[in-house]
């Protein structure tokens, strides 16, 4: 269900699961666009030489996935605040599963709080965080 205003939101609602594109090509394009191009994010072999298990997905790309998941669920909302904790590396070319749950609603202010995670297919948390979303108030 797509959310249009604050009255559409229910406490405890789980957002639709979002599986973003974590292919090496996509991750590399993101990394270059933020000025972080290089083996760590663009080459599995290059990243392994740096001691990583494979090319990394930048933590801030994980935050981008979280924001995209919110916007897909609530196209009229504005993400005012997002906080992500980078708990463990995300690896390119492996699935990332974005999930979120509504943890607080302020109908007077039109604000929604969300707890969010990025997990791998082993259900291991890679990134977790919170977000605050402002939604239109219901029309009188």
């Amino acid at each position: 269900m797509s959310i249009e205003n604050i009255l559409d939101v229910e406490f405890g609602t789980e957002l639709p699961v979002f599986e973003p594109d974590t292919t090496l090509a996509n991750v590399g394009a993101f990394a270059r666009a933020v000025g972080w191009g290089g083996p760590r994010f663009e080459s599995h072999e290059g990243a392994r030489k740096e001691g990583f298990p494979g090319a990394l997905v930048p933590g801030i790309m994980g935050m981008g996935f979280l924001v995209s998941a919110i916007h897909r669920w609530a196209p009229t909302g504005t993400v005012e605040h997002i906080d992500g904790v980078f708990r463990a590396p995300m690896i390119a070319d492996t699935p990332a599963i974005i999930s979120a749950v509504v943890t607080d609603i302020d109908e007077d202010e039109g604000l929604v709080e969300l707890d969010m995670t990025v997990k791998n297919t082993k259900d291991e948390t890679r990134v977790f965080g919170t977000a605050r979303l402002r939604l239109p108030k219901a029309e009188a």
Partner: peptide, 10 residues
């Protein structure tokens, strides 16, 4: 690029 590679739709 950053928006599209993040899966943004807005």
């Amino acid at each position: 690029v950053v928006a599209k590679t993040s899966g943004e739709t807005r």
